[in-house]
């Protein structure tokens, strides 16, 4: 069944928006509108409960203090319900970390996460920073993006890596070949750029899932040129 109107929930971008990840929501919204699909973006703030009836949820990266507040606000807020329904979720960087079992913030405090993904995040000795090219699952073309994180994320058995790193740092730094996470309806990644601006095919995959059926193709344009340009840098 396809939805007549797609509701994209931008989860706390005021807190989880340090690395330009707000762009992911704009990319999703435009790519639906250009196809003539009715789309609504619901942006949550610290004063709003998380709406549970959305068709696609997007979380971005942020600084530690903001991440801790986001975690507090999202605890028990219904994200588990969203995942039980199989609603697609894109979680980037801090957004990925807070869905796991534990994470480390500030001066090294270990904080329990929302525990909806089988992963935990420790602390890297040196931040993992740089361009990444990776080969993803889900039948997608190669991914490009920019990693910039101090977390060392390790996946448990129920989670799979989203992609295999071909160049650049992975989830737990430069020696780790795993990039991101796939578990249930969640696609998690450390890639900024924002990742959906860099990888239009990933944006369309999420939209197809949210829509519940195939979407017409869009003409090839600047996003495809950018994807090709970053792949050619390697």
């Amino acid at each position: 069944m396809t939805a007549s109107r797609i509701r994209i929930v931008s989860v706390l971008p005021g807190l989880l928006g340090t690395y330009g990840d707000g762009g992911n929501v704009l990319v999703l919204e435009r790519r639906l509108a250009w196809r003539g699909v009715d789309v609504e973006v619901v942006t949550t703030t610290v004063d709003d409960p998380l709406p549970v009836g959305g068709d696609l949820y997007v979380l971005g990266g942020g600084e530690d203090e903001a991440q801790v507040l986001a975690l507090k606000l999202l605890r028990g807020a219904g994200l588990a319900t969203v995942l039980e329904r199989g609603t697609p979720v894109l979680a980037v960087c801090a957004g990925l970390q807070l869905l796991g079992s534990t994470l480390v913030v500030g001066d090294g405090t270990v904080v329990p996460g929302l525990d909806v993904l089988d992963l935990s995040t420790g602390r890297l000795e040196r931040r993992a920073v740089g361009e990444v090219i990776a080969r993803p699952g889900l039948g997608l073309p190669q991914l490009t993006g920019f990693a910039n994180h101090g977390g060392a994320t390790v996946l448990g058995p129920a989670a799979q890596p989203f992609a295999r790193v071909l160049s650049g740092p992975g989830n737990a730094g430069h020696a780790d070949p795993d990039e991101g996470v796939l578990q249930g309806s969640v696609v998690g990644t450390y890639l900024h750029g924002p990742v959906l601006a860099r990888n239009p095919a990933l944006a369309d995959l999420l939209l197809t899932r949210a829509h519940g059926g195939p979407l017409p193709d869009l003409p090839v344009g600047p996003p495809e040129a950018l994807h090709a340009a970053r792949l050619a840098d390697r």
């Binding site: 690395y19 330009g20 990840d21 707000g22 762009g23 361009e131 920019f146 900024h192 750029g193 924002p194």
Partner: peptide, 9 residues
């Protein structure tokens, strides 16, 4: 800065 992601802000 080698990451122009900030353009989206």
């Amino acid at each position: 800065g080698i990451d122009p992601s900030w353009l989206w802000d």
